Computed example of a mutant assay.
Amino acid sequence: MVFIQDLHLRDGRTLRVHDSAADHELDSAFTVLWQHGSPQTGALLKPLLSAAAARGIRLLSYGRPGYGGSSGLPGRDVAAAAADVEQLADALGIGRFAVMGASGGGPHALACAALLPERVSAVGCLASLAPLDADGFDWFAGMATDGASLRAAQLGRAERTAYEETVEFDPDSFIEADYNALAGPWAALGADVGLASAAGPDGLIDDDLAFVAPWGFPVAEIDVPVLVVQGRRDRVVPPSHGDWLSRRLPRAELWLRPDDGHISVLEACPAVMDWLSARP
């Protein structure tokens, strides 16, 4: 059972929060906060809940602004996630916690590490983008459709919004292992993406605009342990991003999974939870 509540933030916005500690039976457990991908609602998906329950972990998530019942915040940067997470943790009485993020959730997980270092014990990032201003590699190289949605975001909100009105999913974005994951253990992910997309593109557009703008914190100064998990065959976030992050983050460890794409890499989530639990 997952407890869902709407948290009212200091600026008047609402944040929809999902908490596996129904009836507070896991209040004192090791806590992991999940940063969802783009687009998703922020709901806790069955594979994550099962892995957390097997380990006695309290799992939290929330819909980023514009997703899943959370108020929008046009113009937000990646760093803004840390302020929302801080208020979430305060409201729930959680002092210290770990953070996991996948795909679009990866940069937001890193924001928590950078800006809440006294509270975040460790971070796990799966298939995370690197900052656009990262030196030493071609940020768009290897992306399906040549990163068209992110290139549109570089031109501004109007251009990114216009792109969303005509875009169609490119089936070559995923490899066979990705489609197998979506047809099997991660079917809930595909369903959740559908729900988020049906609610409108605002959250996704705001995410993309934030990814191609300055993030609001220096990645190289993050001083908590970070596990970077990357599929070598990822066509959405190419492996060069994971490589860059693992070389620039001072306390990073890289797990490069040779046969995984963008979705199948999520099969590593239980092992990532184990890694986080060993760094309370």
Rank of each mutant, 00 (worst) to 15 (best):
V265P: 01
L249H: 11
L245W: 12
R257P: 02
S240G: 12
R251Q: 15
G242P: 08
R247M: 06
R235N: 02
L254K: 07
P258N: 10
W255L: 08
R247N: 00
H262Q: 08
P270E: 10
D234W: 13
E267V: 01
L256Q: 08
D259T: 14
D234A: 12
H241Q: 01
A271N: 03
V236I: 06
V236D: 06
G261F: 00
P270V: 07
R257A: 04
S246K: 14
L249D: 02
V237I: 12
L249K: 13
D234P: 09
H241A: 09
A271E: 15
D259A: 09
V265S: 07
P258S: 12
E253M: 14
G242Y: 10
V265L: 05
P239G: 01
G242E: 07
P239E: 09
V265H: 01
E267P: 02
D260C: 15
S264N: 12
D259N: 11
H241V: 14
A252W: 03
A252D: 11
L249I: 05
A271P: 02
R257W: 15
P238I: 04
H262G: 06
L245T: 15
I263H: 12
R257K: 09
G261T: 01
H262T: 05
D260R: 15
L254A: 02
L245R: 14
L245A: 08
H262P: 01
P239T: 13
W255T: 10
W255A: 10
S264R: 09
V265Y: 00
L256Y: 07
L256N: 04
A271C: 02
L254T: 08
A252Y: 07
E253K: 12
L256V: 04
A271S: 15
D243G: 07
P258K: 05
H262S: 05
P250W: 15
D259I: 08
H262D: 09
P250S: 12
P238D: 11
A268L: 02
I263F: 12
W255Y: 04
P270F: 00
L245H: 14
S264Q: 08
W255F: 03
L256T: 04
W244F: 13
S240F: 10
P238C: 05
P239N: 06
P270D: 10
S246C: 11
